[in-house]
């Protein structure tokens, strides 16, 4: 089965951020295909490479980056949702005249059309939200 994944909630704040990861990982391990993981609303914060969780806790962003690398995942952060929350990649930081960027390795910023496309191209779009 080909899945699209939508992550609508922020890391550490809401379980749906964890559930989205666990579901994606489990689906891949069972041999399913993940067309794309799209991060929206506060979900964009899952892509911050500047998060520093306590040592004995899970590292949500690293976990996505590693899973992304292992399975060559398309991890897409919504640009509109990201910008208003201060999530920028290097290009956007430069373009907006900001002095830092914070998008982690393996993620990239793109538009909402990528979410609609995930709905069209996937057999199931699974929404993780509140």
């Amino acid at each position: 089965m080909k899945f699209g994944i939508l992550v609508n909630e922020g890391p550490y704040q809401h379980q749906s951020s964890d559930s989205a990861y666990q579901f994606t990982k489990a689906a891949l391990e069972k041999g399913h295909e993940i067309f794309r993981v799209f991060f929206y609303h506060d979900g964009v914060n899952n892509a911050s490479r500047l998060m520093v969780p306590p040592q004995d806790d899970r590292n949500i962003v690293n976990r996505w980056t590693e899973l992304g690398k292992k399975y060559n995942l398309d991890l897409v952060v919504c640009i509109a949702a990201a910008q208003r929350r201060g999530m920028l990649d290097e290009n956007e930081a430069k373009r907006q005249g900001k002095d830092a960027s914070n998008i982690a390795e393996g993620f990239h910023i793109s538009g909402l059309g990528q979410l609609i496309e995930a709905g069209i191209k996937s057999e199931r779009l699974v929404v993780f939200g509140d």
């Binding site: 929206y40 509109a80 538009g111």
Partner: peptide
Amino acid sequence: TIYALESLEVVLIGAAFDQ
């Protein structure tokens, strides 16, 4: 919360896909 506004943004972008 921002859900309503950001939902509407998806609807408007999605409209261009003729679904």
